[in-house]
Structure formats: C-alpha cells, structure tokens
Design a protein around this nucleic acid. Structure first.
Length: 483
RNA sequence: GCCGGUGUAGUUCAAUGGUAGAACGAAGGACUCAUAAGCCUUAAACAGAGGUCCGAUUCCUCUCACCGGCACCA
C-alpha cells in the first residue's frame, strides 16, 4: 500500500530570471521525491511561482505592461525550469505547478485569512512606514544607512502612518517553542533549527500582512475590506495547501498534508527562508487551526567564483545554458554531488567540467561501455535481480544528505572497475568461455544495481543503462569526454 | 556589539582521546575489456598559543581568520 508523500519547494518570486539557486532546490526536491517513488510511495510534488507584491507591480509598470501580462510571461519561463531540469521527465505521478494568481489559490488565501481573523490573530493597527521623498518610495530599515536613504543621504526620511492589518505573531512564541521541542527534527540541518529557536526565544513582534490597495493594488484582496490587499508572502505561503485543493478538497488535503496528529507535509527552502517557513507559516497554520508542516529542509546558497552572483559582476550562472550545453542529467549530477546539501558551495565552470570528465565520462560512462561491450561481444544474457539498496544509501537519504547518497554510488562504480581489473574477464573469456561469461554476468548485475541507485539522481541515464542491459547492447557513449 | 558555527593534503570534503581517510588534481608503474578510459604505487594536511590527560587533530581557554543569525527584502 503506497503511503502519501508530500514535498514542496518554495515558490520563486518572479521578478527576475530563474536562478541556479532555485534550480538546486528543485533538483534536491526532485531527487528526494523520486527516491520516495522508488520506494513505492505516492508522491505529491509541488512547485510554482509567487506572483504578487510591490516589486512585481513596479517592474510591470516600468516595463509598460499590465501586471497580469508581466507575470504570465515570467510564469512561463519558470515553468520551463522543472522541464529543463528533468523534474517532469518520466515520473510516476505528475508534478503540480501552482501560481499564486490562480483563482483557486487566491480564494484559498482569502479563506485562510478569514480563519486567522476568526481566531482573533488579525487586527487593524497603525503602521508607521518610512518614506524617501527623493526616491518616492517606501524604505525598510535594512535599506537605510544611519537612518537615511543611501541614495539621498541629505534628505530626511519621512514617517507616514497608515492602517495595516497585523498578524499577532506574538501570540505564538510559546506554542512555537513547544512545537519545536516536540518535533526535534522539524528543521534540517540542526544548526538552522538552532537559529530559528534562538530567534523565537528573543521574543516576537507582530507583523504587517496587508498593504493599502490604492498604493499597491497587485495583491489578493483582503476579505471584508476592499481598501487593503494582502502583503505578498501571506498569500504566497498558502500555496502549500491551496495546491492540494484546500479548502474544498478536504480529502486530498488530509491525505497529503496530513492531520493534526500526523502532519505529512515536507518543505524544501533556502536558508533565507527559515523564518518564514519554520516560524511564521507555522504560526499561521496554528492560527488557522490546520496541521503544521512535518519538516523543513534548508539548503545553502550557490556562490560563483567565491562571490555572490550578480549581474554587475557578470558571474551569474544560467541553469538553462548549462542544461543546453551538458544535458539535464549532468546538471542534476553536479548539483547533487558537488554542491553541499546544506552549506553554501561555490560553483565554477572549471569544477563543473572537471567533475564531468572525471566522474561521468571516465567513471560512469566508461564503466557502462566496458561492461556492455563485454556482454554484447560474448552474448551474455543477464536477468536483473530485484534491487536492494544499501544501508548507507538509505540512511543518507533519510537524513537528506544528498551528496552522501550519491557518493555511495560512485564508490560502487569504483568497486566494479577494481573488480574487473582484478578478475580480468577479458582474459578468462579466452581460456574458459563459460567461466568468463559468468563473471561478466556479475558485472552486468552490478551495473544494474548502479543504474537503480541512480534513478532519483539521473533518471534518463539510469533508464538508458537499464535499456542497454535489457537489449544486451552497448549504448551510445553516454558522456563523451570534453577537452 | 550579542549569539552560533567553521578553520584538516594544491582543491572539495571525511573520521577519530592512542598509527589522520577519500575524491579531483600532480608524479611514476604494469596492463589493454573500455570513452588514451580503468587498475596499482607515490608525494601531499590537523590556523596559532596555552591547559586537562599516560596520551589531543579530537575536550577546555585564549588569539587570529572566515561564515551565518540578530524581523517586514522576497
């Protein structure tokens, strides 16, 4: 009986082109999801796009476009990313792609708002915002230097009062801390968990969750107050359950998101998202009387040549270009094995190419060729056993240590290479054909196990290898050397 | 400033209170089934100073360096 398994990425904000950092999140999530499929579970995989808010509104206006038209274009771009990364390829269960401008989502967000409101956790308060006359823009504290706008340091920041709805986050300090205590693996890795615990222990302030519609109309209307729209991330977070058809489809919701007693929703997110995912969203769920998430898995960032990627530095890595040149599975391989699952990692084209040649061309690709040439030449038919996955492989998967898991596969590749060098089947086969064929059968068997273990990481490559084994034919070079 | 973390071969990472492992890269060797691939061998590291201990890379303190968090940026 397959168990329902729910996994979601965060939704990227569509104010810029798809980023390699989000490609990492998608690939990590997909690897975990495919592992669950391999185990036989019924997987609900969610991703999508976050499309409301001030930045998008401004960008659209600046581009002379209607906001809806603007986000439609971006959503199409972002939808191509899971395709380019093979997330949609050859899956047992289709992926779900939600846009926060989907009507079913906006309605869910409004329903969610009402539930929090009915719990008494939403109230109208004065909100004092900082405004730079020079920029004609609102400024947040983090944007200011010494209390001044860095672009207009000679102008005084004006304080403007307006009414906003606030979420009473302060009501949830104790409940969140209890929740963390009762769920000691709620955030992975644990150093991120500590971070959020300390943050909560320091005390919580309420936060604004709406904006004046006349100033910024590009948001979900606040139910019962047509002067306000929701602040972007309040509505965006609800996607994790609106994608399941909540509130209408209670059955599907409960099946995948779980129940109060047994939460089932697992979320992937970048390290900049801990507070929102592990604290605010959890408090919102509590307020709405819905089950919490089961677990939040936090990954690091990808730097480029030791620096943050930026257009001005010209070190931005485009995931589409990478896929174009090397292919989907190569990019997946690199992100899985050579980018740390939890910490920041550096990405350079040199490292990428080196890994390609050393591990894919010389390692996996060559092993497939050497074994399958032997099998084809000597007509060795092999019946593939049912696969058993090793303890280190499974254990590392349970801890989300993706690079550890895939390391074990390369250990197996090396072991098979060593074995062939030691047993010399290419000699034995000349003196004792049946003995040689027996040996070759073992290597094919090992190759099949490698292909099986590879399924979550490189689904297309894995299938090519298994097909070659079934047909007993050496395949085309999987990974030609690049010099 | 406060809190937390990290510092191990050229590089990316492991492990351990008692001879520090691997991968990539480098050098050499024997072979040839394979994508001049693979295999074998070699060189190469515990940031610094104290302390506890029979013994510390591992535990403690300090110094230095780096990183992260300290709320309305998604």
């Amino acid at each position: 009986m397959p168990k329902p398994y729910y996994l979601t990425t965060t939704l990227p904000y569509v104010n810029a082109d798809p980023h390699i950092g989000f490609a990492l999140e998608l690939v990590q999530a997909d690897i975990i999801a495919r592992y669950q499929e391999l185990l036989g579970e019924e997987v609900f995989f969610n991703t999508g796009t976050d499309e409301h808010g001030l930045k998008i509104y401004r960008n659209a206006i600046a581009a002379g476009k209607d906001p809806q038209e603007y986000v439609d274009e971006y959503a199409a771009k972002f939808r191509r990313l899971p395709e380019a990364l093979g997330v949609t390829t050859n899956r047992r269960y289709p992926i779900h792609f939600i846009r926060t401008t989907d009507p079913k989502h906006t309605q869910a967000a409004q329903k969610f708002w009402r539930r929090c409101y009915d719990s008494g956790d939403i109230e109208l308060k004065d909100y004092e915002l900082k405004y730079c006359v020079g920029c004609e823009l609102e400024k947040s504290d983090s944007e200011l230097v010494n209390g001044c706008c860095p672009l207009h340091p000679n102008l005084k920041i004006e304080l403007i009062k307006e009414k906003n709805y606030f979420f009473k986050f302060s009501n949830y300090q104790g409940r969140l801390l209890d929740f963390y205590k009762n769920n000691p693996a709620f955030v992975v890795p644990d150093f991120r968990f500590n971070e959020i615990k300390v943050f909560i222990e320091r005390g919580l302030g309420d936060f604004s969750i709406s904006r004046l519609k006349e100033k910024m109309p590009w948001g979900v209307p606040v139910p019962g107050d047509d002067t306000q729209v929701m602040f972007v991330w309040f509505d965006a977070l609800v996607n994790y359950i609106s994608t399941l058809g909540w509130p209408e489809d209670e059955k599907n919701f409960e099946k995948f998101w779980g129940t109060m007693e047994k939460p089932n929703g697992i979320q992937m997110a970048g390290k900049d998202q801990i507070r929102q995912q592990a604290a605010m969203w959890q408090a919102m769920l509590m307020s709405a009387g819905l089950p919490n998430s089961k677990q939040i898995v936090i990954h690091g960032f990808i730097t480029s040549g030791g620096q943050k990627m930026s257009k001005s530095l010209g070190n931005v890595i485009d995931p589409f270009a990478l896929v174009e040149e090397y292919g989907t599975d190569v990019v997946r391989y690199f992100l899985a094995r050579h980018i740390n699952s939890f910490e920041d990692s550096d990405f350079t084209l040199e490292r990428f190419k080196e890994a390609y040649n050393a591990n894919l061309a010389n390692g996996l690709g060559n092993l497939v060729a050497r074994v399958m040439v032997l099998a084809e030449t000597y007509q060795v038919q092999t019946v593939i056993f049912k696969q058993q996955r090793s303890q280190p492989y499974q254990g590392a998967f349970e801890r989300y240590e993706i690079n550890r898991v895939i390391d074990t596969i390369w250990e197996d590749i090396q072991r098979t290479d060593q074995r062939i060098a030691r047993e010399k089947p290419f000699e034995i086969v000349k003196s004792d054909l049946s003995e040689g064929k027996l040996l070759i059968q073992v290597y094919v068997q090992e190759l099949a196990a490698i292909a099986d273990a590879l399924t979550p990481f490189m689904p297309t490559t894995s299938e090519k290898i298994l097909k070659a084994i079934r047909e007993n034919r050496k395949p085309e070079n999987l990974f030609p050397r690049k010099d």
